[in-house]
Amino acid sequence: MTRPDRPDHTAPSLGELRAFAAYNLDVSLAAKAHEILTSKAAHEILSARAAPAQAGRRWQDQVIMDEVPRGASVLDLGCGEGELLSQLIRRLAVRAQGVELDPLAVLKTIDRGVPVLNIDLDHGLVDFADQSFDYVILESTLQTLKNPLAVLREMLRVGRRGIVAFPNFGHWRVRFDLAVRGRMPVTPELPYGWHDTPNIHLFTLADFLDWCLVNEVTVEQSFGLVEGRLKAGLSPTDNLVVEEALIFLERAPGSRPGPPAEASP
């Protein structure tokens, strides 16, 4: 179903890519991007519009399951239907707690036997004691919040470690849509139109890493999806190629024991 207000996913022409490359001064990357975009696999990915959000979630879940030790305590903020927590409970016997705003997703989480709180994260996490969870997860949630920084700070107050997964608005495909086509980006990871997107606070991998630096938050581990493949150990220079990022955070050693200072990048 084509809607006039949603740009389609047809591959850009070489001319468009050259114009894009001029913005980014990286012709080789643009050529590579063109190669990827015109491939059959890319066509298949780009034509499947509804599915990517689901498909995209799996790799983050897998990484999280590989990293979280057995018996840990995990708080999942924006736990959706509780798939990740239910797997963590089953495979790793974690002490799990979910938080989710959507009532239907909450009911499905309950069906899975996962404890879940039907509350609005934007009202703050007053419910949890300091450092009461080993891990606090924000998977594809941060960019949907009214007060993302408040929630990040709360995350590091409540959890010994934070795990943040987000779509990277610095990815070249996103920049291409905006810079060359002059349209709000619609990509497999960001399948929404400008008017119906839940993503209200848009940021890039570089923005996020800046925030960590300024706020004395240590990036313990980082993972990204690059051309459909998992890459471990991200740097700000990956900003152009990472589609989705997964960052493990810790408060920097020696930083104040309280919540990190209020500073935005």
Binding site: A96, P103, V116, L117, N118, I119, D127, A129, S132
Partner: peptide, 21 residues
């Protein structure tokens, strides 16, 4: 109702809470 839920969370108890419209 949420005050009880908050107390359970602060006490480290897993709890399910739903506010039904």
């Amino acid at each position: 109702c949420r005050e009880l839920v908050s107390a359970m969370c602060r006490a480290g108890r897993a709890v399910t809470y739903v506010d039904i419209p």
